[in-house]
Amino acid sequence: MKLRKLLSAAIGTMLCMAMVAGCGQSAPAATQAATQAATPAASDKLIKVGIINNDPNESGYRTANDKDLQKTFCEANGFDASFAYSLKNDEQITAAQKFIQDEVDYLLLSAADTAGWDTVLKDAQTAGVKVILFDRTIDADESLYEASIVSDMAKEGQTAVDWLVGQNLDKYEVIHLQGVMGSAAQKGRSGALDTTAKEKGWTIVTQQTAEWNAEKAQQIVQSAIDSGKSFNVIYAENDDMAKGAVAALDKANISHGVGKDVIVMGFDCNKWALEELLAQNWNYDGQCNPFQSSYIKEIIDTLESGGTISQKTIIMDEKGFDASTITQEDVDNYGI
């Protein structure tokens, strides 16, 4: 009995340690980067940046975003970068405090939550750390950060809806598949469609959240088909949901794509989605640009050379792809 207790205690500790090691990957990485930086620092001064991001496993968007940042903020480009990942605000704040203690020059932040950042950003300001926000904004005074590089989700939605208006269909009967309710992407992309549909008198056949989930989208569209509803547009707020919707259409033998019965629209520009566009199975895909690093680098370069940033909020260029004009080059360049 005693042995068993001892053994279970031992395994328990091991598991705990494994979990701590798993969660705290950023910590050893940071110290490693610091020691590496110590040697070349004598000859050439590297710019120290601390990057706080969401978990790259969260989505294809985040994976592409993280890859892009890793590529830009490398030693060859004159940066000594440390990364911290978390989907939780409090863990991100702890990571930020650690980066401030480590005396980074720049703190790049994609906050998990909009609230709760005032104190730590004030600390950063006192310590002389310049803060740049990317991808997500926060509820804090503008003076606390240098710049914020964001996507304008409402504009993304508007671009897509404008494209849809341009199709000049005889009638508009839309199935609207929404993302997780309340998320910035959902609000922006739904808002544009809602307003235009009201103005132009479009019929929204079904408006339902599939929570970014392909299976749920498939069920919702299936349900619309089973109920005998007539529709000619599928407006899905991300690619996964568009894919689910298309699976349901295929089952019911409803044709979709360029010049077919149903127009399929997606967002995010996953590579596979753009390939569907290229094959003319879908009609439109809106970009949500994950490549912020070039914008960030530009700002850092300006600040380092003593310049000032005229505009606090920088909205990135985002494209919308039409199946009839997309090229293989677009797929390679913009697919994530």
């Binding site: 069920q219 349900s223 089973d226 109920s227 295929d250 089952k251 019911a252 033998n253 409803i254 044709s255």
Partner: peptide, 21 residues
Amino acid sequence: MNNNSAGYPVLSGQLITIIDN
């Protein structure tokens, strides 16, 4: 009973969706 896009006849309806999903 309808044909699916592969050309085979398949049953469809809400009840079928339920036993399917």
